[in-house]
């Protein structure tokens, strides 16, 4: 049974006059111990999915889903107290912008220590508990690769560089020993060595503690090196989802193919100085989403049928939503 199971998640934004579907029937499952990558262009709704799972949606967002289960319990129907308990212990989120996700008036150490669940703190008296908290904070900070904990635990968020902030967010997420880690673009703004360090840390946690990770990124190279499965998102619709290997070898959806082709690192056959293939046009704004398959106007294989939203089709554990998929003759 999947750990997190989301089926037909629809998120509507009320802009006063009408409702816009920012997410349109998105499906996402995460199994225990799996690293799932979630990719898509900017504005495709990746961060909205994170907000929907973590329950941090603003009031004018309306969320409906056929199923949104955490270990068999519905996240939508449970009480806010139960939901909070799950967020506190089982799911941890690393947000995109670390500096704005940290309280500007509290030191990093305070914020890190307050994220430790009470049952993980040893000791009976408050000084013992304080010591234990401090110890846990320091060891977690070391684990994510911040060496000088003395400098940073007493610093305020505006005093630290962004990459330290990003690592700190990861430390804050890991300190509650979660089962699922949702990381929203964790390596943004980091240079290569730090990036590798963070990615290695995530992979190691996945292997040693069987931590499931929902990995959201633009970095296809990083994704292909660590993710087991991948879900591709376009303009609020999940277009294709399956094992990483299958998707790379034989993408069924034209958008997945275009996305993979646009990454030069995957194209060993690309001659030097040739034009990188890309899809015409840009992702439509939420005010002007096309009907049917939202890729329609940009898709090279689009036909008349594409004005009807394609149903989700499944070949083994590979799902896709397209009327005219690629590579069908080989299957």
């Amino acid at each position: 049974m999947p750990m997190l199971d989301i089926k037909n998640l629809t998120l509507e934004i009320d802009n006063g006059t009408s409702r816009v579907k920012a997410l349109d029937r998105v499906n996402l499952t995460i199994k225990s111990g799996e690293i799932r990558a979630l990719v898509g262009e900017s504005g495709s709704g990746k961060s909205l999915i994170v907000a929907a799972i973590s329950g941090a949606l603003p009031d004018q967002f309306y969320l409906t889903a056929d199923r949104m289960d955490w270990n068999g319990e519905s996240l939508l129907s449970m009480s806010s107290e139960q939901r909070r308990e799950i967020m506190r212990r089982d799911i941890a989120v690393v947000f995109q912008n670390p500096i704005s996700a940290l309280d500007p008036s509290a030191t990093l150490g305070e914020q890190l220590e307050e994220s430790i669940p009470a049952e993980l703190v040893e000791g009976k008296w408050f000084w013992q508990r304080r010591k234990s908290r401090r110890k846990a904070a320091i060891s977690t900070v070391h684990k994510v690769g911040i060496k000088h904990h003395r400098n940073y635990l007493n610093a305020y968020p505006h005093q630290i560089p962004t990459d330290i902030g990003q690592k700190f967010m990861i430390a804050m997420a890991l300190i509650s020993q979660p089962k699922l880690l949702i990381v929203d673009d964790p390596t943004r703004g980091m240079e290569t060595t730090t990036k590798t360090q963070v990615l290695k840390l995530l992979t190691r946690l996945n292997q040693t503690r069987s931590l499931s990770i929902l990995f959201i990124s633009h970095d296809l190279l990083a994704i292909s090196s660590m993710a087991h499965t991948m879900t591709v998102l376009y303009c609020g619709q999940s277009v294709e989802s399956g094992r990483m290997k299958m998707l790379r070898k034989r993408p069924l959806h034209p958008y997945t193919k275009a996305l993979l082709d646009s990454a030069p690192s995957f194209r060993h056959d690309l001659p030097p100085k040739s034009i990188l293939p890309n899809m015409d046009g840009t992702i439509p704004s939420l005010k002007h989403v096309p009907i049917g398959c939202r890729l329609g106007p940009r898709c090279p294989r689009a036909q008349k049928d594409c004005v009807i939203t394609p149903a989700v089709r499944r070949i083994h554990d590979h799902t896709y939503s397209c009327h005219f998929p690629l590579h069908m003759e080989k299957l």
């Binding site: 907000a51 973590s54 329950g55 941090a56 603003p58 909070r84 308990e85 799950i86 967020m87 506190r88 212990r89 799911i91 941890a92 989120v93 947000f95 912008n97 704005s100 996700a101 940290l102 309280d103 500007p104 008036s105 509290a106 307050e114 994220s115 669940p117 804050m172 509650s176």
Partner: peptide, 27 residues
């Protein structure tokens, strides 16, 4: 209340009281 760090604190599973006294009030 509408700052991202309050939303982030909420996703860390802090209670309403903790969020108010530790994060909202001082700011």
């Amino acid at each position: 209340k509408n700052k991202p760090f309050v939303a982030a604190a909420r996703t860390r599973g802090l209670s309403q009281g903790q969020i108010f006294y530790r994060h909202i009030l001082r700011n």
